[in-house]
Amino acid sequence: MRSVLLLIGFLIPIVAIAQSSFVIRGYGKRLKDGEKIFLSYKLPSGFIDDSTVVSKGYFEFKGSMKGFARGYICRNDNPKYAEFLRDRFEVYVEPGIAILKSADTLNNSIISGTILNNDNAILIKKLKPIEIQKRSLKDIDQFSTEELKDTSLVNKTKAKSLALSKESALIELDFINQHPNSYVSLYNLLRISKSRNLLSKVETAFSKLNGTLRELPEGIEIKRRIVESKKIQIGMQSIDFEQPTPTGNMIKLSAYKGKYLLIDFWASWCLPCREENPNVIAAYNTFKNMNFTVLSISIDVLADKAKWLQAIKDDQLPWTQVSDLKKENTAAKIYGVTTIPSNVMIDPTGKVIAKDLKGKELIDFLSKTLSAN
């Protein structure tokens, strides 16, 4: 839903050759003369930003580089300063001539002409029905004050967004399995690997990737996430740890034995975590009298302690909060947390019974589990 500015991917160091030229040409019936078009991508030396102006419904970028990189083109909004990119299109900057055609906006462009952009065009076509539905959802960040007060509307919007994201991920995994030699597959698999609930499917897809792709930095990171995710599995006994509250009181996980406990990993700077907090609060308030509670572990560092404390206050989190405020939180490392928000549910015996329950899934799981006890 949100137009994220950091859409630039990693440098793609598959081919270490001499400088090669690239051309990106864009045509659009509704592109107006004088409109500014921006191109941004990342090289080892840093971000490269370029711009041009539409003339007779046409724009063009030219350049040269070693290898290729992922970037994006946007219309009118300068990515250096804009909070949202209202009209953008992701591209691979690579040797050859890439042609971008649009009947209306950049968002609906069709790209062709170079290897990776051709691969990406196949994926874009598969995802188009989902993307149309995503764009029909209003971004919660753009909700009015009155809309934000409508809890039902907010929850429905979040649930719909989450369902569409899951559907997209499954389509992307199918593409990856069918295109094991494409960097487009590796790039998308890296993003999907942030979802611990999909890591078994990620592992299967990763095993099918070309060996060269698996040895790239992105591939190594995917492998790390897979390995880390296996540290704590459903059915395993939870591993004890001890961390301080904001006031310095040491809290042990084992002190919660006899209760159903949600171990919640988050951080003050993590927007998805902050957006998930109301759902955790709802679960806590609904089931706190049914032998259930929450223990939150922040991966904020010492320099951000004040922000952590303010976030606890602002989000009105009533349960115990702990953090060792280290660069690598000890508990997060024990539990193989590679992305947040993340959580682990343990039963009164300390056994792991669920992982990464969000939104309605959390409420449904607790309702079913606690009503049976």
Rank of each mutant, 00 (worst) to 15 (best):
L11D: 14
S20Y: 06
F22R: 09
I24G: 01
I24L: 15
K32C: 05
G34E: 12
D49R: 13
T52L: 08
G57T: 09
S64Y: 10
M65K: 14
F68K: 15
F68C: 10
G71C: 12
G71F: 06
G71K: 02
R75P: 01
N78W: 06
P79Q: 01
Y81C: 01
L85D: 04
L85S: 04
L85T: 01
F89L: 12
V91K: 02
V91R: 00
G96E: 04
D104C: 09
L116V: 03
D119L: 00
I122D: 02
I132W: 07
I132M: 13
F143T: 02
E146H: 04
L153K: 15
V154I: 13
K156D: 14
K158V: 04
A163P: 00
S165E: 04
A169R: 00
L173S: 08
F175W: 03
I176T: 08
S182I: 07
Y183N: 05
Y183M: 04
N188A: 05
S193M: 00
S193Q: 01
E203R: 05
E203T: 07
T204Y: 08
N210K: 04
G211I: 13
T212D: 13
L213D: 07
P217E: 05
M236C: 05
F241G: 00
Q243Y: 07
G248S: 06
L253C: 11
L253Y: 09
Y256Q: 11
Y256P: 10
G258C: 11
I263P: 01
F265V: 00
S268C: 02
W269V: 01
C273T: 08
V280G: 08
I281E: 07
Y284A: 09
Y284E: 04
M290N: 14
N291T: 09
D300E: 11
D300Q: 12
L302D: 11
A303G: 05
K305D: 06
K307D: 07
A311C: 09
I312Y: 04
T320I: 15
V322T: 15
D324Y: 03
K327D: 12
K327T: 14
A332Y: 05
G336R: 00
T338A: 09
V344F: 06
G350F: 07
K351L: 06
I353R: 02
L357S: 02
G359H: 11
G359C: 03
S367L: 08
A372I: 09
